[in-house]
Amino acid sequence: MTRIKILVDGVDYSDDVEPRTLLVHYLREQLGKTGTVVGCDTSNCGACTVLLDNSSVKSCTVLAVQANGHEVTTIEGLAIDGELHPMQQAFHENHALQCGFCTPGMVMQSIDLLHDNPSPTEQEVREGLEGNLCRCTGYQNIVKAVLAAAAAHRESAPGAVPSGGST
């Protein structure tokens, strides 16, 4: 067992983990943060995407011990006092989901995407989400939601960069 200290969604945790524990399993099984899902288990689908020090990662391809001393934001850390993060709101308004399984990863990667590029073109949104698969093939509304979130952000806070809710 190795002792790790991690800030997850604004809360400090200190836990013993097996070195082989994947970050996604630590989040789900040890912290109960089941909002982050395991989609493919092969690093392809991106459903398990979280922010590690504000950069998106596939949490099935990071060991929990590698996150020791770092900060993680999951889908559960985005809403503040019941108010959705603007990206969640945009997904809601644009019906950017069908079965919803890819949604946690899509939302987290979309936040990372706008952090890097606050005014993406449609093509740039599609490329920025290339590591996230929607098996319902519901990409059209997802892309629409990300573009809507970018536009809403430009109107509400010109010049600022959106980030995770807890950070």
């Binding site: 991106g46 995407t49 590690l52 998106s56 990662v57 990667q109 920025g128 590591g131 996230n132």
Partner: peptide, 9 residues
């Protein structure tokens, strides 16, 4: 290379 998440790590 791969996708943005992989390029971060």
């Amino acid at each position: 290379v791969a996708d943005p998440q992989v390029r971060h790590r």
